[in-house]
Design a protein around this nucleic acid. Structure first.
Length: 374
DNA sequence: TCTGGGGTCCTAGGACCC
DNA sequence: TCTGGGGTCCTAGGACCC
């Protein structure tokens, strides 16, 4: 979706359409999440500190984020796509991959029809790339933004993709780009011409091989239509840096709140987690994480807090903090009830003791009733 | 007065097990 | 006296994406 958050906001504030608009916190530590195309002409970009954006574009209008509204439009545009195609891979709030292989119709007509259905459902424009695989579809969806429709056929790789900078590859970020540039590789074509063995030497076997493959437009990843979440987390950056001792009460309250929010989130989605983690960011932006795997999965705020506290004790708090986060991972579905005795195929409880007496870990606590009638 | 929040995946070392 | 070869799980950090 084109400038998604900004475009959704402009639906209800059409009078701002021709003005520079950025979505995000204006003051203090805010960053721009999305800028409309007017603001982009001033150099305003996603992830840019709001202050910097205002330097570049003093008249930029800042609007606060409204995730509920964006989620609503996310559902609408995805439903519009689902009216034409069944195999859809979710890539976040404003992006999807669609498998058009078995969808009836000529390619350009299909692309136009997708765009029309999305405009009809939402009033929003999008940019579509159609190609033989996800790698190329993603690259070419970017080529004619906004409101683009780009189709990549045979022979287009060299002409349209190879001139692009390596950073346009989904999976090549700032670090890899800089490293490649340092090797004299700027474009995807340059990457394709580079000795694969040299890439492996510099980037490791997996990433090096992958760089060579994608530079030649090769990608066999399937469309993934279903997936289970791996973690849930909450984090917050404070309005000012907090001192671990002097601001102890405030930090403690925030910590408790984050645990409660994660717990609520898990409960709502009926997940439990076994690994509880924390994230701290110090005033110098150094970030540390700690995590702890507990014997039984939980979604309980107090249990999460207890484990998170244990994690916190393992960090030396020798600087002020700017961020605190709590994460729960190693998720399982709540109805899997993994805390019950495992069942044999016959449906009886398995014996609690096997022939050989196995040592038990201390934290398992007392041995429970062998068979609890339900 | 730089630098959000919510995710995924990968790597690497160590503990531990057979 | 100079130390195997698997495997899994846990932990910490980092790159990357939307």
């Amino acid at each position: 979706m084109d400038a998604f958050y900004a475009s959704v906001e402009l639906l209800r504030r059409p009078e701002l359409r021709e003005l520079p608009v950025a979505i995000g916190g204006r003051g203090g530590r805010g960053v721009v999440t999305t800028a409309n195309y007017v603001a982009r002409r001033f150099g305003v970009r996603s992830a840019m500190p709001a202050r910097k954006a205002l330097e570049l574009c003093p008249d930029c209008i800042f609007l606060p984020v409204d995730f509920d509204e964006y989620r609503k439009y996310s559902r609408l545009f995805k439903a519009a796509i689902a009216s034409l195609a069944t195999r859809i891979e979710d890539r976040g709030i404003d992006e999807v991959y669609v498998d058009l292989t078995d969808v009836e119709g000529e390619t350009t007509a299909l692309g136009r029809m997708l765009k029309q259905r999305i405009v009809d459902a939402t009033g929003l424009t999008c940019s579509i790339g159609i190609a033989p695989n996800k790698l190329l579809a993603k690259i070419c969806s970017d080529l004619e933004k906004p409101d683009g429709l780009t189709i990549l056929g045979p022979g287009d790789l060299e002409r349209r993709v190879w001139p692009l900078p390596v950073g346009r590859i989904n999976g090549v970020g700032p670090k890899a780009s800089a490293k490649l540039n340092g090797m004299g590789i700027e474009s995807i074509g340059g990457l394709a011409r580079h000795d694969p063995l040299a890439l492996i030497e510099r980037f490791g076997a997996n990433y090096g091989r992958w760089l060579n493959e994608v530079a030649h437009g090769r990608d066999e990843r399937p469309i993934v239509t279903e997936s289970e979440p791996r973690s849930r987390s909450r984090e917050t950056t404070f309005e000012r840096d907090l001192h671990p001792l002097r601001d102890r009460a405030e930090l403690s309250a925030i910590f408790t709140r984050l645990c409660a929010q994660v717990a609520q989130d898990l409960q709502k989605r009926r997940y439990l987690g076994r690994t509880i983690g924390i994230k701290l960011r110090f005033d110098d932006f150094r970030t540390v994480t700690r995590d702890l795997t507990i014997p039984r999965p939980t979604a309980d705020a107090l249990e999460i807090r207890k484990a998170a506290r244990a994690c916190l004790k393992r960090v030396r708090l020798d600087r002020k903090l700017r961020l605190l986060g709590v994460r729960v991972s190693a998720l399982s579905a709540e109805d899997a009830r993994p805390d019950r005795q495992p069942r044999s195929p016959l449906g009886e409880s398995l014996p609690l003791f096997s022939a050989v007496d196995e040592p038990r870990m201390e934290h398992e606590g007392p041995v429970q009733q062998a068979v609890a009638p339900e």
